[in-house]
Amino acid sequence: MKNIFPLVAAVIGLAGAGCNTVNTTETAQPSYQRNMVAEKRVITDSSLARKVQVLGVNATEGPGGFLKVQAELQNTTRSLHRFSYKWEWFDQSGNLLEGPTSVAITRQIEGKESMFISGIAPNPAAKDFRLKLYENAK
C-alpha cells in the first residue's frame, strides 16, 4: 500500500509532461496605459479562434507618423499551438497598402500562454489596419 504513492506521483508527473503550460506573473496595477482599439472580428475558423484568442488590440502613432499596432493573444488550451498572422494596412481612402511586411509570420504559443504581436505601418499614409490569423498550414 505504501508503494502506491510514488506510482501515483509518477502518473501525475507523466500526465503533466504532455501539456506544458505557462505560468505568468505581472504587476497587479501596470504603470502603462494602453490605447485600446474598438475592433470588429470576423471568425471563420472557429477551431483556431477557440485555441488562440485575441484579448485586445492597442495602437499608437510615433513622432514620424507611423501607426504601431499591438495585439495580445492567448492560448486558451493547455497544449502548444502554431499559427500565422499577417498585418494589412489601409490608407485614408481604404486602399490596401502592400509592401514587404505584409507577409505571414509563423509563431508558436505554449498552453495558457499570452503573448504580444506587433506591426508597424509601412508609411505614414497608413491610417487603418487589419490583423489576420491563420491556423498553421504545416
Binding site: G62, P63, K68, P100, T101, I105, I120
Partner: peptide, 23 residues
C-alpha cells in the same frame, strides 16, 4: 521563402520603429 519573409519583416519593422518613426 518564409524564412526570408520573416527575417526581412523583423528587420524592416525594427528599422522603421527605432529609426524612421522615431525621427
Amino acid at each position: 521563402i518564409q524564412d526570408w519573409n520573416m527575417a526581412s519583416e523583423a528587420m524592416i519593422n525594427s528599422l522603421i520603429e527605432k529609426q524612421v518613426n522615431a525621427g
